[in-house]
């Protein structure tokens, strides 16, 4: 698992990258009540706002962590946004991306580095 400074996690699954938000981010956001997902088969660039997430407190954006194509989104979040709080690292994933070269993930933080960031 890799982590971004925007508190997203990235997990390699075959040739895809699964993206979600960390437990720390989910706790900070508070109860998530609405998630707007991107259309699958969308080309995105690093830093693009691809999802909107609304908690009881505020709206936030989920950014594309790398360049690539969104190939799948977690439709379950639309009906049950609370999954983001209940299981942020598992059932609460947001989208899957196809990237040209998985080695781009090497630049992101590992677990220890991320813990240092939030600690």
């Amino acid at each position: 698992m890799k982590y971004t400074k925007d508190h997203e996690w990235l997990r390699v699954e075959g040739d895809l990258v699964v993206v979600g938000i960390t437990e720390h981010a989910a706790t900070q956001l508070g109860d998530v009540v609405f998630v707007e997902l991107p259309e699958p088969e969308t080309q995105v660039a690093e830093g693009d706002e691809v999802c909107v997430i609304e908690s009881v407190k505020a709206a936030s954006d989920i950014l594309a962590p790398v360049d690539g194509e969104i190939v799948a989104v977690n439709q379950k979040l639309v009906d049950n946004p609370a999954l983001v709080n209940e299981d942020p690292l598992g059932e609460g994933w947001f989208f899957k991306m196809k990237v040209d070269d998985l080695s781009v993930l090497d630049d992101f933080m590992d677990e220890d580095e991320y813990q240092d960031l939030i600690g």
Binding site: V33, F34, E36, V52, E54, A58, A59, P81
Partner: peptide
């Protein structure tokens, strides 16, 4: 005001 759907209007 009751927004349609689940997205809050703040």
């Amino acid at each position: 005001l009751r927004p349609e759907g689940r997205a809050p209007m703040r």
